[in-house]
């Protein structure tokens, strides 16, 4: 079974730490600097939404260039082969895939991205900082990034697993794999037996009265 990360809306306080961490770790390894989970605040509740790594993934089915594949118990998206056709984003029933890269010229941006003006001050490099692995932090954050689909990759490149789970201060995020899923299913089955027998024995007791 494919593993996936899911949030518990009762615990999520909408603090966005998971989103920030997601951008950070992906940027560090040279992947798209864009959050793969999106904290979504509604009147009904708040939680980050991310890929469910479906067993029969519709995104993989519609990808014309085979950039999305199932391997190692997850749905992987190869950012290098992706042509940015956005079909996967249409197909995903959860809104877990988002195209990301340069914005089209026609998009109205009355506010210059802050870093642009910083970069424009004089052409000296930004202070070295461990978070910018790519060559130029200017390219990294604003113009010039090829638009591709981005989605949760379970931080496959990190030994300690998804970073979002680690940083969430309320531990609202957890990984669901076949073990934890079957444990929860069998626990619920036991509860069902207990509840059913309670109901039935209650009913028979009433009958006997």
């Amino acid at each position: 079974m494919n593993r996936f990360v899911i949030a518990e809306p009762k615990l999520c306080i909408g603090c966005y730490t998971c989103e920030a961490a997601c951008v950070d770790v992906h940027q560090e390894v040279g992947l798209q600097a864009h959050p793969r989970l999106v904290v979504t605040q509604t009147a009904q509740g708040t939680m980050p939404v991310q890929c469910r790594h479906c067993e029969d993934a519709p995104c993989a089915k519609v990808c014309p260039v085979g950039a999305i594949t199932e391997a190692d118990g997850m749905i992987q998206l190869n950012e290098s082969t992706c042509i940015g056709c956005k079909m996967c984003a249409l197909a995903c029933p959860f809104g877990a895939i988002e195209p990301h890269g340069s914005s089209p010229l026609s998009q109205q941006m009355p506010y210059e991205p802050y870093v642009e003006s910083a970069g424009a001050i004089i052409g000296e490099p930004l202070a070295p900082s461990a978070i910018s692995a790519p060559l130029s932090s200017l390219l990294d954050w604003s113009a010039g990034v090829r638009t591709v689909a981005v989605k949760c990759d379970l931080c496959y490149f990190r030994e300690d697993g998804p970073k979002c789970i680690q940083v969430c201060p309320t531990k609202a995020l957890r990984i669901v794999d076949s073990e934890s899923l079957s444990a929860s299913i069998s626990a619920k089955r036991r509860q069902t037996v207990a509840k059913t027998s309670q109901v039935l024995s209650g009913a028979s007791a009433a009958e006997n009265e």
Partner: peptide, 18 residues
Amino acid sequence: GELCLKGYYGFNHVADRR
């Protein structure tokens, strides 16, 4: 053992060249 995003990622101003 926890921090929020400002604690984790709000330090760039220290070395900012401005």
